[in-house]
Each structure stands twice: as C-alpha cells, then as structure tokens.
Simulated scan of single mutants.
Amino acid sequence: MRRGCRTTIGLALGAVLAFAEAAYVLLTLPALAVPSARRRVFAGARLLAEVERARLARYLRNENSADYGGRRALEYLAVRCVVGGLGAGVFVLILWGAVSGLVMASQFFSGAPIGGGDPIGDDHDWYDLPAVFLLGLLLIFIAVQGLIGVATLDRRVAHRFLGPSEQDLLRRRVSQLATSRAEVIEAVNDERRRIERDLHDGVQQRLVALGMVLGRALRSKDPEHRGELVRQAHDESQQALQDLREVTWRVYPIALDSGGLEVALESLAERSSVPVTLDYALPERPGAAVETVAYFVASEAVTNAIKHAGASRIGISVTGDETMVTVRITDDGAGGAQASGGGLSGLARRVAAVDGVFTVDSPAGGPTTIEAELPCA
C-alpha cells in the first residue's frame, strides 16, 4: 500500500510537470535555429531532466544515469511530456469517476433515480445498484492498469534517453578492455619479477648454501663432522624444496585443476602459519578464470595479513550463485591497508580483468576486510 501511494504521488507530480515540459519544448524549438541560443536551451532542458530524474528515483525507485547531454535531455522532455499527458488523462478519468460515484451514491440514499431515469420503486429498477457497482469496479481496474502502464512507460522512456547512448557505452567498453588488458600485462610482469626475486633470494641462496655444506663435507676428514654436515645438507635440501613448493604455489596451485577452488583454499589454510577459517558455500564450481582470480585474492590477502598486519586470526568466506562469486577475507591485524598498495593494487587489476569489483576496508587499528565480487557469466 505504501509503495502504491508513493508511486501514485510520483505519477501525479509527473502529470503536473508534463505541462511545464511541453510548454518548454514548444517555446524553445524556434530557438534551436539560432546557434548561439542552443546552449541555453540545452542547459534548461537538462535542468528539467534532472528534476524528472530525481522524481523517478524518489517515487518510482528508478535510478538513471546523469551522464547525458543537453540534446538528449531535450529529446527526453519531448517524449516525456506525452507520457505525462497520458498520466494526466488517467487522473482526470479517476477524478471524474470519483465525482460520478459520489453523485450516484447521494442519489441512491436520497431516493432519486441513479443517473436519471425512472424513480426507484418501478419493477425494472432493481438492477440499477448492482450494475453501477460492477461498472465502478471495472473503471477502478482500468484506472489502476492505466497508472501501472504510465509508470512503466515513464521508466522505459527515462532508461532510453537518460544516460549514455549505445555508441558511447561501446566506446567506453572498448576503452575499459584496453585499460584492463594493459593492467593485466603489468600485473603479470610484476608477478614474474616477484617470482624471479623469490627464486633468486630464496631457493637459489639455499641451493648455494647446500652446495657449500656438501663441499665442506667432501673436504672433511672427520667422519663425525662429515655426518653432521650431511645432516645439515639434508635439512637445507628439505628447506629448499619447501621454498620451491611455495614458489610453485604462487605461480599456479595444481590443486585448482585437480580439486577446484575449495581444495586449493583448504591447502592454503593448512599451510598458513596463522589459524585460518574457511567458509565455502558455492552451489557449483565456477569457471577456471574465476577460480584462479579468487584463489590469488585469498592467497595474497592472507600473505599480507601475516607479513604486514600481524594478524592472529584470518577468515576466508566464499559465497555466491550462478552469476556472482564473492570472496571475503577478514583479519584482526593492525589495519591500515590501502588498495593502492603494491600487492593489493595487483589484485585489483586481476579482479578488474574479469569485470569484478575489488574493495578494501582497513581502518587504522583493524580489522581489515578485503572483498572481491567476481561475475561468473
């Protein structure tokens, strides 16, 4: 009921505005022939269009873009005044019907003939009241359907004219794709440089240390000392294998192919030095591209929480449906993370590459929440 009243008020305001819009369009059409006056005409049209946009948003719950020019605003007003005129006609019919109903009701209770004719009491006037009642119900139904139709037209006309055209949307989409492609290339290059740095500073250094320990073992004359060096070499080899495994997981975890996102995230939680809770609630397995981005968002967020935020607990939540996957990572660390930071900016580029939305909420002192919304279609 509240929604219906709000919509009716909005349509009534639209009916009143239609007369002002029609007058503006008719009065300013001759001015379009003067080049110097067009800008002022378009500016006035945009002002009226903004009033309409605010009316639609408040009363009809219809949001429209403000990204349109004065010419499109004038075109919108030219069509909108016709729709508003239809709404005004519906309201006139409703008012006429309401007045007629009150007149007939007063005639019935006063004993006068309903709508004129023979007085009540003749043999054929018993059907007057049911006939008028049924006719009133029919008129109410037609009036309600008329208001619904005007509201639908109002929304469609605004959607058609307010906002960028299809050509503008296409150009913007091409620009977005070109930008995202460049960002993906940059993110891949950053990831390659980081992998190379990890190999050079981690695995390579351990292999050098392993070679040195083995060399000392070969030169040692003491069997006990040689055995101790061999044990050190064994420990170094195990650590080198662990570092190499970490690097390969950062390149691409094989668990994504074999078990999917849930198994990969479970492995991530098991390998973490900080307790990680996983809440996975996807009805079906998403595509490979979405799984890859979701995993790396979670992996990088967990790594940042451990290294930079000093978190003691981390939570990973994966929810969604057939059209959208939402990955949310929370931690109780120090906070202060910025989406423009080194690691997080790379994640933002990864998410943007699949038309996703990446947000970071990390006030000073924590907690930190990192969320990625990834479309599946």
Rank of each mutant, 00 (worst) to 15 (best):
Q205A: 14
A22C: 04
V293Q: 06
A15R: 05
A298M: 03
E228K: 15
P130D: 14
E284T: 10
E228W: 05
G146W: 06
V274F: 07
P35Y: 09
M104W: 11
L214C: 15
Y68S: 05
T368P: 01
E52C: 05
R216F: 15
G215C: 10
R245A: 12
E52H: 15
V354G: 02
V351N: 03
L93K: 09
V203W: 02
R6D: 13
P275S: 08
R3I: 09
G117M: 09
I114D: 04
E191Y: 11
A352N: 10
L11E: 00
P375K: 01
V92W: 07
V174P: 00
A23Q: 04
G136R: 05
G87I: 03
A15Q: 08
R226L: 08
A288H: 12
V92C: 13
S175Y: 09
R226M: 06
R206A: 12
I329H: 00
P164A: 03
V79S: 07
E52V: 06
S175P: 00
G116Y: 09
R197W: 15
R71H: 08
G211Y: 10
L17I: 03
L86H: 13
Q205L: 15
V82W: 08
V25I: 14
L261R: 00
A18F: 05
G69W: 07
L218H: 11
Q145L: 15
D332V: 12
A240W: 06
F109G: 06
L77E: 05
V16D: 02
R160F: 11
L347G: 01
T303P: 00
L199I: 05
T152Q: 07
S340I: 07
D331R: 04
P35G: 05
E266P: 00
L218R: 14
R271F: 01
F19L: 10
H159P: 00
V357Y: 00
L229T: 11
I370R: 02
F296L: 10
S272W: 06
V90T: 04
L162M: 13
V302G: 10
Y76A: 11
I140R: 07
L47S: 13
S258P: 00
Q205I: 06
H225E: 15
L244D: 00
G259N: 03
A15K: 08
I9P: 00
C5S: 13
S180I: 02
D361I: 02
L139W: 14
I316R: 03
I306G: 01
V16W: 02
R197G: 12
A301L: 07
V174S: 11
E196D: 15
K221T: 13
L177Q: 12
R313N: 10
R173F: 03
G97M: 13
A143Q: 05
Q204V: 12
V174F: 08
R6H: 11
D198Y: 09
L86R: 13
D67C: 02
